[in-house]
């Protein structure tokens, strides 16, 4: 069964029917937002049942749209948190990929600016590595990007998509060794992106991110995960009631190959490891439960089938 990431937008009235349908079909609700009278569901739905979902949604005035980034957590790495880089373009890109279903986190480097003085500390490196992908937002000069990139990529193990002022071909030329994705023409700017040309550029960034993540999913598909992160999320939600008390918009963030659970590690790691997915199979059998460097959250990394010889 191939699950397709989608977003459902509709009214509050009878939206529970849509939720039930997705769950009955074997899909998962990744995130649910109730905003006044509107409901936004981000979900994974079996590909063959998409039409059925659209049919059920139609009389409820609901809309089902594909959202390629649902179920991913993406780091938007800004060179600093000063006015030079915020709120544009960092927040514009973070917001745009969020609209496409990703959970985006803006990471402002303490000393990412400058050509000679740019650096990445261990905490920043570890936090970036906890994501599925990192978007590096550089400035407008190819010379500076070329000089600082080796420093800022040191120790990064997740795929990187580089964005900067020079065009894509120039970025591709100056970055050595190559990174997974490039998108040029979006460097430092000081105005809000609202023109159609600028929105097209943001669409381009989303397309590049989607391409890189699809490639990662294909790689994971060669050695599949022992359990789907979406299923693991439901297990955690059912067996750890404390997660329902968390006020964060996404108490459990689904990643391509894991979960971020927003509960304190010291208190809940033991309970999490002991959660039973199926008879005789516990979370600790199929995943690593690790302390996150983001606050005191818990990071769950699902092991591949080749390591566990289990598929639940």
């Amino acid at each position: 069964m191939i699950l397709v990431p989608v977003t459902y937008k509709g009214g509050v009235y009878r939206h529970d029917e849509v939720v039930d349908l997705i769950e009955d079909l074997g899909g998962s609700i990744i995130q649910k937002h109730v905003i006044a009278q509107e409901v936004v569901l981000q979900a994974l739905v079996p590909r063959e049942d998409l039409e059925l979902l659209a049919q059920v949604a139609r009389p409820l005035m609901g809309e089902v749209t594909p959202s390629p980034l649902v179920g991913t957590e993406i780091a938007v790495v800004s060179m600093s948190l000063e006015i030079h880089h915020l709120p544009h373009p960092s927040c514009d890109i973070a917001e745009y990929i969020r609209r496409n279903g990703a959970k985006s986190n803006v990471i402002g480097l303490a000393r990412g600016f400058g050509k000679r003085i740019a650096q990445l500390n261990d905490e920043e490196r570890d936090v970036i590595n906890e994501h599925d992908l990192a978007i590096y937002l550089f400035g407008n000069f190819a010379h500076c990007i070329e000089k600082k990139m080796p420093v800022l990529r040191r120790g990064i193990t997740v795929p990187i998509v580089v964005c900067g002022g020079p065009d894509t071909a120039t970025l591709r030329e100056i970055i050595d060794p190559p990174v997974e994705g490039y998108y040029g023409g979006i460097g430092r700017f000081m105005h809000r992106t609202k023109e159609s040309e600028e929105l097209a550029t943001l669409e381009g960034v989303v397309a590049e991110v989607t391409r890189v993540l699809d490639r990662r999913r294909v790689e994971i598909g060669k050695d599949p995960l022992s359990v789907s992160p979406a299923r693991l999320m439901e297990v955690v939600r059912d067996q750890i009631p404390a997660i329902n008390e968390v006020l964060s918009p996404t108490p459990i963030t689904v990643q391509v190959a894991g979960l971020r659970v927003k509960l304190p590690y010291d208190t809940f790691a033991g309970q999490l490891k002991a959660c039973e997915i199926e008879e005789g199979v516990r979370v600790s059998d199929v995943a690593e439960v690790l302390p996150s460097r983001m606050r005191d959250y818990i990071l769950i990394r699902v092991k591949p089938f080749s390591e566990t010889s289990l598929m639940v």
Partner: peptide, 18 residues
Amino acid sequence: EATGGELYQKIAGVVLLD
């Protein structure tokens, strides 16, 4: 760097207007 220069011209214009 021609591209960088053009982009900085835009930045300067926006900042001075703001």
